[in-house]
Design a protein around this nucleic acid. Structure first.
Length: 320
DNA sequence: AAACGCGCCAACCGCTTGTTT
DNA sequence: AAAACAAGCGGTTGGCGCGTT
């Protein structure tokens, strides 16, 4: 049989103490001393549970309680003791006469903890914060990072368009009719008709036919998107890096008709194997006009309306 | 003047530990 | 030895006051 709750009595008052309650409690303890807290409320004429009375007395009414602001010495002592004892507030309180564990705990949580954090000290370990140096280094790279975000966003846009094209041009199976429907065209039944879709936008058509001499998004340094902690796959073969990779009749993998299970993308982070990478998140000096963006920018894909397409493709993109 | 956000702190809650029966 | 009880402890919450918008 478990222990019954301390304050399970019905009608027991909770919340802030009234002055007359404080008076009753103080008078009773001054007269009879501390003792059986469970019986005290009844004897003192209080409609409170014993636990509540004890807390009120020890944290507020006790005559030896020292109220007011913590001094610098107390502050230093608390930090010092906390570094040794941790959150042992009652033990810490025994070293600060007149201060209650509750008061020290509150002071720590509201003031000291923040103070330490601001001065670069971890309030748990009392050691210099390691994440702060990381933050500092990130700040120093803010300028280039902002530019990288632009580069990365651009790259993702291009990559999505690239995969959209590939989906529509897979040769190993019937074209993805659903996607084609999404493009708002009449349902094509062969590759010739699929090509007609691209005729809707000369720019995309050019992209597919490689007639602009566009930089391939797949060549040297291509990586496979990985979900295992960002590990990169080995660069793909030289065949894959051919400009033909953007052409029709390319093998799209075994999952034609659905989004390829293994989505290829240009590497975003340089690696020893990816010497030719033009985009690196670490100290990149790329600008929006640097390769591979120049030629792609010429497409003016913003006007293509790809965003709407990608929105509608989201069920495929999110499919397992 | 009202609304809102935020910090402070008293009090509560649930759990653990120690003591008594 | 086990159950019941009391006290203590630390985390969390809720209300209040104050400053800002």
């Amino acid at each position: 049989m478990g222990r019954p709750p301390c304050c399970d009595e019905h009608g027991v008052k909770k919340g802030s103490w009234m002055p007359d309650e404080d008076k009753k409690l103080t008078e009773y303890i001054e007269k009879h001393g501390q003792g059986n807290w469970r019986r005290l409320p009844k004897l003192a004429g209080l409609n409170r549970c014993g636990k509540s009375c004890r807390l009120r007395w020890t944290n507020y009414l006790r005559p030896d309680i020292r109220r007011g602001k913590f001094t610098d010495e107390e502050e230093k002592l608390i930090i010092q003791l906390h570094s040794v004892l941790g959150n042992k507030w009652s033990t810490i309180a025994t070293r600060l006469p007149g201060r209650t564990d509750n008061e020290i705990k509150n002071f720590w949580n509201t003031t000291l903890r923040k103070k330490l954090l601001q001065t670069g000290i971890d309030p748990v370990t009392h050691q210099p914060r390691t994440d702060l140096s990381l933050l500092s280094s990130l700040t120093s790279r803010l300028d280039s990072s902002l530019q990288l975000q632009v580069d990365a966003a651009r790259l993702i846009e291009l990559h999505l368009v690239q995969n959209l094209v590939r989906l529509l041009t897979c040769s190993s199976a019937a074209p993805n009719l659903d996607l084609i429907r999404l493009l708002g065209s009449a349902v094509p039944t062969n590759h010739h008709q699929v090509n007609d879709i691209f005729a809707l936008t000369p720019q995309l058509s050019s992209l597919v036919n490689g007639s602009l001499g566009l930089p391939s998004l797949e060549p040297v340094g291509q990586q496979t998107l990985s979900v295992n902690g960002g590990q990169t796959a080995a660069p793909s073969s030289a065949d894959d890096s051919s400009s033909e990779s953007m052409m029709m009749n390319r093998d799209c993998g075994t999952n034609s008709g659905t989004f390829p299970a293994s989505v290829t993308t240009p590497s975003l982070v340089s690696s020893p194997e990816n010497k030719n990478e033009t985009i690196s998140l670490e100290g990149s000096t790329n600008t929006p006009t640097s390769p591979p963006f120049e030629a792609w920018d010429a497409l003016n894909l913003d006007d293509f309306g790809w965003k709407e397409i990608i929105d509608q493709m989201s069920p495929w993109l999110n499919a397992p």
